[in-house]
Structures are given as structure tokens and as C-alpha cells.
Design a protein around this nucleic acid. Sequence first.
RNA 1: GGGGGAGUAGCUCAAUUGGUUAGAGUCCCAGAUUGUCGAUCUGGUUGUUGCGGGUUCGAGUCCCGUCUCUCCCGCCA
Length: 609
Amino acid sequence: MHPYRTHTCGALRSNDVSRSARLSGWVFRKRDHGQLLFLDLRDHYGLTQVVIHPDREFFELCTKLKLESIITVTGVVVARSPDTVNSDLPTGAIELVADAVTVESVCEPLPLQIDCPEDGPEDIRLHYRYLDLRRERLHRNIILRSRVISYLRQKMTELGFNEFQTPILTSSSPEGARDYLVPSRVHPGKFYALPQAPQQFKQLLMVAGFDRYFQIAPCFRDEDARADRSPGEFYQLDLEMSFATQADVFQVVEEVMAGVFGAFSSKPFNPPPFPRIPYAEAMLKYGSDKPDLRIPIVMQDATGIFKGGGFKAFASVIEQGGVVRAVPVKGIAGQPRSFFDKLVDYAKSIGSKGLAYLVWEGGIVKGPIVKFLTPDQIQAIAGLCEVGESDVVFFVCDRPALVNKITGDLRLKLGNDLKLADQNVFKFCWIVDFPMFETDPETNRITFSHNPFSMPQGGMQAIEEQDPLSILAYQYDIVCNGCELSSGAIRNHSPDIMYKAFAIAGYSREDVDEKFSGMINAFRLGAPPHGGIAPGLDRIVMLLAGEQNIREVIAFPMNQKAQDLMMDAPAPVADKQLRELHLKVVPPKTAPAAVPPAEIIGPLGGNLR
RNA sequence: GGGGGAGUAGCUCAAUUGGUUAGAGUCCCAGAUUGUCGAUCUGGUUGUUGCGGGUUCGAGUCCCGUCUCUCCCGCCA
């Protein structure tokens, strides 16, 4: 017999009855009846009830076993009597009657309860992540992640993509997020950078003629965390295709997304093709380039209706280039006055000068601004917003950029507070036609609004003839339930167009040659038209698992301040290591480095350093 | 870098306008218990109310500072 197990804790069934079996696992729960002891033995595969009879010499030992200790139990599989069958358990028709018990590992008092649906304090969870991961929900999430990755690999291979590895130690790129840097021992004063994405490598693989690339790619960005953004590192399903149009990329991604969401979630989603929403339309209708389409609020431009009208607060702002955005919400006319007052306060708190609104109730139109409007204007608003009895329309008037932000936030808040979004569906869309360039509000200079390597729509002609701010890019995002899953683009594979595009953003030919020499040289030596995208794996799993925080789908995440509390990273290193790397630490003036890290005393005696 | 929230027993939380010995569930410990499966029953331990200062006859509660965690803004080609 195998020293540890003949079956897993999820394997035994009624047809194993009277078999001799050996199980190993964690003591999940104990039920001590004095003259009879039940143990629920748990492993990765499931739970099996072990029965210990009082005449066994190990009975006493077992009654004193601490939860989460690990034991090996040898015994006979016995059918449960009909009234004691547990139909909630796959193994619930049988139980293992113990003839021998070996303690493999004793568990000391636990800092976290394993059999507990509620989360403990975040820092304790992260410090004892291996315990947190024993909990059913997290264990399930991590396995879901594993299965999703496996599915993606299989699907991508089926679609003719080949998986590649690209360097982890590479060079810093001047664009984009802050890099994580790795000092070179051999080259004093020089640094590697961890890749923010394998962007250039995957494009070079296209130049190399591999046609279709994919990778479950680690990406490293030194940026601050959010609930859906883990600091440090994250993973993308990175893909790139040669001789591909935007439509080709969409088709592949739609097939993969529909496949993975169909396979791993029971929630319905809109089937491909996903709606294509131009960036400008998304900003107008939803105030966001990652709209949550579950919220049934579609905003409208009402600038024309208020222009030169009797509502001077709006008319004067419009004269200075402002716009009016109408936010129609159906069926909320009955909300109390306090609801509207709070919303006005909220709008002000996020930078709005105010929040106007009209209420269609009891056959009349009410609201603070109604006295400034003509019946024709009100009629026009009702027609524009398609509202009527019991509906409400909010209005914000300001500079266009601010209006987008305010109404976008307002739309989300209304959706949230009024629970307008169906939590049991996924709604996908593409955001397309992103502008190639934008004006940096601080410097007033033109910069790339997204990926500088995107192909401008209209190619060379557009770059040469159009107002830069009017040029669109073959740049796209896929969005699900208000979550940006990914950005992608058809790439600019022409050195000439690239030089021109970079010139508009203020980079000289020499700059481009210096910063992107590898790429620009490659594009002079036969580069196929190509494009791709990189859906965020962590966010996909987060959506599938129904989790609100990305840490819940990462086995060993860092906390919000980019610390690994379990491994104690980042940490100081020995002077010898610094000398070898030709580095000297210059602490900031308010030196937090002098403060020792908080210590959590636990079973392993200290902070695990 | 900025703003919000939270911090009370190992854990989840309570504690009236500032009022007397800071409670409950759970975990843990002891005892009882032969069919439970979140076992049950009885009893018990657990506290620098994050930390430091201040106001007050009196502070978990009010004020100031600070630390930790978290959410958001900035940032994320």
C-alpha cells in the first residue's frame, strides 16, 4: 500500500464500500461525540468523513488533534446508513472507518481560520498566504486561473498561434509606465528593465516570420495599485498576428473570449460580434472609454438645446466653448428630495459647478431649472433623451473633458446606488478609433494618446495632411462590464510613417533611431503588416470568479504598497551586493528606510525573513 | 504626492448625548456527550480599545499628531 494514500479525499464512492483505503489530508473539522469521533479529512480534491471508534488506541490522540494538522488514515470504506448519508458531499454516501492513524504534521494555533467564508484582515491574509489559499474560495479561484490559462493555451494553439518566451531582463523604454530596473554588475551604471509588456519582442517575432505569436506574458510596471490593478507584475494573454486587419484581430479575440467565458462562467454574455463603439461616441454616451454597458443610461449632447437660452448659467459656459451633457435615468422620479440633493453634492465633489435636473412626474415637469426653460426646450429634451412620465434627466455643463469625467462618474454612481447594473451578465464591447494624438494639458504639447507604434488611420497621407488631433489610430480596447480587459492595435510597420508620427509628438529622427533602434532597423528589413492585443489574464479571471479585487485571483499578490508581506519584499540587501552592483543607497530626506518593518509573530516564529 | 474609509479579545463585530467592572458570536481551553456533518450542552481564558499627546471630575467615544490596512485621484505608451 502506498505510504500516504490509495485515494484522494474526494475519490471514494459507494462502489468502494468494504474496500481497504488510505487517505492523507488536513483535519478540516472535528465532531467529538465522546464515544465516537468524526473527522472531516480535506485535501485538494475534496472531503471525506473519517470515523474513529473509541476502542482504538489512537482515539485519544485523534480527539486532541488540532485542526489543520495533517494525518494519514488507513481503514475500511463503509456505506453510511440511509439516514446519515450527506447528499451535500460527493463522498457523502460513505465514510472511512479508521484502523490506523499517523500524524504527518502537527498544526499550531492558526492566525487565520480556514473553515470561514469571511476574509480576515488583509495583512494577515497576505502574510500567511498559504493558509489563505487553503480556504475554499481562494483555492477555487486559483484553480480557475490555472484552468483558464490551460484553456487559453489550447485555444490559441488551435487557432494557429505559437507560444514564445521573451526576455525578462531587457531595456528600459522611454514611453509608458515607470520601469522596474535591475542594475548590471558587468556594466557599471547601466540597468536592465523588466518588460512592461513584450511589445517590441512580439513585433520582432512577426518580422522574423513566425506569423502568429502568443504568450501568457508577465508584465512589470512600477505604478500604484487599484482594486483591479496589482502592483508590480501582472499577466496578459499577449498575441500578435501578421498580415492581419483590425477585423482579423477582433475575430480571434471574440472567439477566445466567448470560448473562455462560455466555458468558465454560467452567466450569459452578449455573443460575438461585440459592439464596436468609436471612442468619441463612448465618451459622449457613457463618459468613459471603458463603459459598463450593463447600466442602462445613455447620455446625450444637449448643448444645442441650451445654447443662447434663458438658463444663463449654461448659456454663458456654452459661449466659452462648453458643452451640455444630458444624463437620462428612467423611472426614478419618485426618489426623495434628499436623493437629488446628495447627488448635487456628489457632482460638486467631483469638480462639477452644479447639477441641474428635470423630473417628469404627475404629468408635469419639475426641477430647479424648469423656470428657465421654454416648453419647446423641455419638449426637445424629452425627445432627445426619450424620456417621459416618472423619468429624470440630469444636466452637466462645462468644458468637454470635464463634462466627460463628471458625467461618466455620475453614470457609474447612479448605476451603483440604484443597482441598475445586472450583476449576472457580462457585456462586452470594443472601443475603436482612438485618437492617435492628444494635447498634454500641462505642457500644451502634442503627445501620443496611446501606443506610439499604432498605425494611424489613413497612413502617410493622414499624417502629412490632417490636423494631428483629428487623426485616428487603428487602436482598440476590449471592455467587459466597465473593466478594460485589454488594449491593442494594428502596428505601424513603416519606418517613414513612424518617423513622421514621432516627429509630431516632438521626437527627432535621431531620438527614434536611438530609443527604438532594434525595431526601426527591423522595419527596414522586411516587416509584414501586423497587429495584436493583450487581454489581461488577471482581470479575465477576476470577472469569471466574480471577485471585486484582483488579489483574490493571484496566488501570491503584493499589497497596495507593492510589498510582499510573506516573503518580505522589497528588503534591504547586504553592502557586498550593493558594491558588486556599483550602487550606493541615498535615503530620501524623510527616511522611512530607518523604520523596521512591522513584525507579525506567528507559528513560524517571526516575520519569516 | 493628494482625498475618503477602517483600526475594540486570535477572528467577526457591539458598546445611547463623553459616565461606573468594555460585551456578544466564533476560535481556543476544560468537562459532558455513540451518528454527527457549521454537531450539541456546560463552564472558562482571552483587551496597553493601533500608537503618542491633549481637553475633561471622567475618553473606546471629543481634539491634535502618528502608524497600519484599504478604496479612489494622480500615475497606468
